[in-house]
């Protein structure tokens, strides 16, 4: 159970990016977060595992207040929060197995990490998960030898190795081709059910959001302005999320990729 209350984030002295945001995610649901570029989606996810320091408000994960943690307690809390990145963020020169075991770094002693003497049950778990997502035969390959879709699977397994209580995915499919993209979304959906794991997914592809998630949250200017089932997301709600009238939204849509115009 994740409970976010009145979350505010300000970078430097500028305008706040998150303006008093409230969000509850009960166990084992897949929630997609949609919103125009710059709405603050990444900032929200990063506040949860404190890659970004929240300015105000509270974030509670299964009863533990995350915003006040420091050093060791913070590291312990991060072990329980898996994150999946748009750019996969693997260590290219390490093998797939080493990348996957990175998810256990918070648990194992330093000498094991240094000598690559991982505990037997971690290795077994890694093989099990890699098989589940279809990359077990790559265990000894270097991560940069894999295709984008395969790399994202490594990213997913790395996060699952943490035995997380929640999974955060920041545009996990934005760098993938349509087929891999749907496979990853499907994977996240089924894994969430299998492991009864809440999953938060930032996503620009509204069609995929509708198809693979039970709940969609719309963000604009650092606030939630839509929260409901895919069926509730009608044209009016879409307009509210994506095409506001303010200058900021205008600027955001200007910077969105446009089809090439030939003179």
């Amino acid at each position: 159970m994740l409970r976010i209350q009145n979350l505010v984030k300000r970078y430097g002295h500028g305008e706040p990016v998150l303006r008093g945001l409230d969000l509850d995610v009960p166990g084992e649901s897949v929630v997609s977060i949609i919103g125009a570029s710059g709405a603050g989606k990444s900032t929200l996810l990063r506040c949860i595992n404190r890659l970004v320091e929240p300015s105000e408000g509270s974030i509670e994960l299964n009863g533990l207040e995350l915003t006040s943690l420091k050093r060791e307690p913070l590291r312990k809390a991060r072990r329980r929060i898996g994150m999946i990145f748009q750019g996969f963020n693997l260590v290219d020169r390490l093998t797939v197995m080493e990348n996957v075991q990175c998810g256990r770094l918070g648990y194992i002693p330093y000498w094991r990490a240094a000598l690559r003497k991982y505990p037997a049950e971690d290795i077994e778990r890694a093989y099990h998960l890699m098989e589940r997502v279809g990359i077990a035969h790559y265990a000894n390959q270097r991560a940069d030898a894999l295709s984008g879709g395969e790399r994202q699977r490594v990213g997913v397994v790395r996060a699952l190795m943490q035995q997380p209580e929640i999974l955060l995915a920041d545009e996990p499919t934005a760098s993938l081709d349509p087929v891999s993209s749907r496979q990853i979304m499907e994977l996240l959906q089924t894994l969430s059910q299998e492991l009864s794991l809440p999953v938060l997914i930032n996503i620009h592809n509204v069609a995929e959001a509708r198809e693979y998630t039970q709940r969609i949250v719309g963000m604009r200017f650092g606030k939630l302005i839509f929260d409901g089932e895919p069926a509730d997301l009608d044209q009016q709600a879409m307009d509210a999320v994506y095409s506001g009238t303010s200058e900021t939204t205008q600027a955001a849509s200007d910077s969105a990729p446009m089809p090439m115009v030939t003179p």
Partner: peptide, 11 residues
């Protein structure tokens, strides 16, 4: 990758 590993709670 540095950020990703920090996010796993590694020291």
């Amino acid at each position: 990758p540095v950020e990703a590993l920090e996010a796993t709670g590694a020291s």
